[in-house]
Nucleic acid binder design. Structure first.
Lengths: 225, 225
DNA sequence: ACCTGAACACCGTTCAAGT
DNA sequence: ACCTGAACACCGTTCAAGT
């Protein structure tokens, strides 16, 4: 029965995925090439195509590997606090892995890790009192919202940022731009400049997530909110 | 004063942007190369770097060009209906331009078109009764939400879809997968399979947007909701 | 001021050939 | 069964050189 008697860990899809994860961390998604992943495992690029159909499939594996380190927050008999913690920790996970949002976004090829997370989240929504239909939709909303938010947060804001300008500097520059607009043509932009560019991403996330949770709460009968 | 006396339209950034737009429509974002854009305007790739710092900057221009066809919905003295229409038409615009969400997402290098849209949307939020701080944040929330949603909607769902499988087929396959899971380990996923994979993207968008709008409404004093 | 040729250092993928 | 060499058809970007 033992198909692999020697200790040398044959080149598996698992090993490939881990190598891809290291390359992603080191060089980012734009620097992630089949050639580099191959080099990382000590093999030539062409060899990868024996284990994996193409680069897309490797990215599917990578996506699930990123989710592997996700940990659901503790149960605490307060659906709203749980879902808040859930979304915040999902955001943290995406922020902590380089370009993670871009890798994961829209890639709903459900790997085992994603399945476990979904199962757990669905359970909390149902016990909170949401109907089956609402539970399914709410789960989609939360996933799409967090991924969308972090995607904005993590992606290069413009050509400027690629060239080394920090996020804060870009925001400040936008603030100056807004303030400098003609007040007759752009009264709102110029007046709201501070509010538009002041809040950092943590504050924005908090605001947005609370609005989404308010919206979900409105689906519940008043006594369960 | 006339710097360009002959009628031949010199190679401008504008012309470049329009060419890029055509290449995007034809070949998608992954097929959009500097070489192809150059060919589209009858020039060699190296020439582009006279007009534009790099590809990122061309993508910034492209992003604003996509927004150029956006039209704010009519005023109708109902903030909720207006914002619904706003978001729905923004989604439409992104869906109608190939890979538009990927081009626009996170690229807040505010071009003139985006500025005009923001100004208009801020105005509606303020007259609806939102505070200045809430107006700024609500505008961010709506933009991030729609972009995040369409990004999921438009991006290849997995290696499978790249190989020609339709979105509906992928969803159906996911449904079969969910239903086939062991009911003791995945009770929620298996029971909610239909709800999770049934609704099409229009229904999902409608649900999610209404939750977001409910959440925003909760910020207003009751009489203005 | 604007464009080109040629080069540099890369890509993803295929496929016959090796072991 | 698994890996390689070599090739194909591409990339973004730079830079001396042309006009």
């Amino acid at each position: 029965m033992p198909e692999n008697e020697d200790a040398t860990p044959a080149l598996t899809r698992e090993a490939l995925t881990q190598a891809a994860l290291r390359v992603l961390e080191r060089d980012g998604l734009d620097g992630l090439s089949m050639r580099k992943v191959a080099a990382e495992v000590g093999v030539k690029a062409a060899s990868l195509y024996w284990h994996v159909r193409n680069k897309q499939e490797l990215l599917d594996l990578l996506s699930d590997a990123i989710l592997a380190s996700a940990e659901p927050p503790p149960r605490q008999d307060d659906w709203r606090a749980e879902l808040y913690a859930y979304s915040a920790s999902y955001r943290r996970l995406l922020l902590d892995n380089r370009d993670a949002a871009r890798v994961v976004a829209g890639r709903l090829a459900p790997g085992p890790c994603l399945l476990n997370l979904m199962e757990d989240q669905l359970d909390r929504l149902r016990t909170a009192g949401f109907s089956d239909a609402d539970t399914a939709m709410a789960s989609y909303l939360l996933g799409a919202f967090v991924q969308g938010f972090v995607l904005q947060e993590q992606s290069p804001i413009s050509a400027a940022e690629v060239l080394g300008t920090s996020r804060r500097d870009v925001a400040d520059a936008a603030g100056d731009l807004f303030r400098g607009l003609p007040t007759d043509q752009y009264p709102n932009l110029s007046q709201l400049a501070d509010h538009l560019t002041g809040p950092d991403m943590d504050a924005r996330f908090d605001f947005c997530l609370n609005r989404v949770l308010d919206g979900l709460a409105a689906l519940l009968p008043p006594e369960r909110r």
